[in-house]
């Protein structure tokens, strides 16, 4: 069953068409990769799916319910969580408090929220850092924290924006392994990812965007050899 159905999604910023008539479906339990050069419209698509921007046209259905026009907090409560490309930790709160904010969606009891938050922190490998302030974390740790926060809202669908972007090489395998474990837990995922190696090891299917349009939709191998995708990244000469 499709958990997410997107039809004809369009978003304009002045004269720029950031998302142009994009349609796709995501099946429950699937990992969908989203690739495209900078400015292709990947992050805009995330903003539309999570209600941070209103689309100009198009429909989004999550588990069969239309969600266009709902506030971001409502969409999160329905079961879509996200991370941000530019990380947004609650800097002056501790790591465990950051995750407690998310866990409190399901319990008003701080002790229960803390118990759940610590489980999530243990899952992402940040348990040791629980009492550090978020501003003291490295970039890789912040990515883990942001994933932990999103996970603690117990979403059905998790949107991850550049899990490996801006992280030192040493930290990448651990982050990939973490996404792999999310998948084994049965989470449906959409990943924005530049690193093809990461996508090859994680994604079931890849959606390629270029200048706001969907140019390809297929298995990672298909996408890797797709003429349009190679052109969009490297120019026609390489295709």
């Amino acid at each position: 069953m499709a958990i997410l159905e997107v039809e004809g999604l369009t978003k304009k910023f002045g004269g720029l068409i950031a998302n142009n008539d994009i349609s796709f479906r995501v099946e429950a339990g699937e990992i969908l990769g989203l690739i495209g050069p900078n400015g292709a419209g990947k992050s805009t698509l995330f903003e539309l799916l999570t209600g941070f921007y209103p689309p100009d046209r198009g429909a989004i259905r999550f588990q069969g319910h239309p969600i266009v026009g709902l506030r971001p907090d409502r969409i999160n409560r329905l079961g879509i969580a996200r991370t941000f490309q530019k990380l947004k930790p609650f800097q002056n709160m501790t790591v465990v408090e950051n995750v407690m904010v998310a866990a409190m969606q399901h319990t008003a009891n701080p002790r229960k929220a803390r118990t759940q938050a610590l489980e999530t922190l243990s899952f992402v490998g940040l348990l040791e850092m629980r009492n550090a302030h978020a501003k003291a974390l490295s970039t890789g740790q912040r990515k883990r924290l942001e994933m932990a926060r999103a996970m603690a809202t117990r979403p059905r669908l998790l949107l991850l924006d550049e899990v490996t972007g801006g992280v030192d090489q040493r930290s990448i395998p651990g982050l990939i392994e973490l996404v792999g474990r999310l998948r084994r837990e049965g989470m449906t995922l959409i990943l924005i990812e530049h690193n093809m190696q990461v996508l090859m090891s994680l994604a079931d299917r890849v959606l390629a965007l270029h200048l706001g349009r969907k140019i390809a939709d297929g298995t990672p191998t298909e996408i890797q050899n797709h003429r349009g995708v190679i052109e969009s990244y490297l120019g026609a000469a390489y295709a």
């Binding site: 941070f52 907090d73 609650f90 904010v101 809202t153």
Partner: peptide
């Protein structure tokens, strides 16, 4: 700290 992040976590 981060109103956008708070919204993304279900806070009205």
């Amino acid at each position: 700290e981060e109103p956008e992040a708070a919204r993304s976590l279900g806070v009205n």
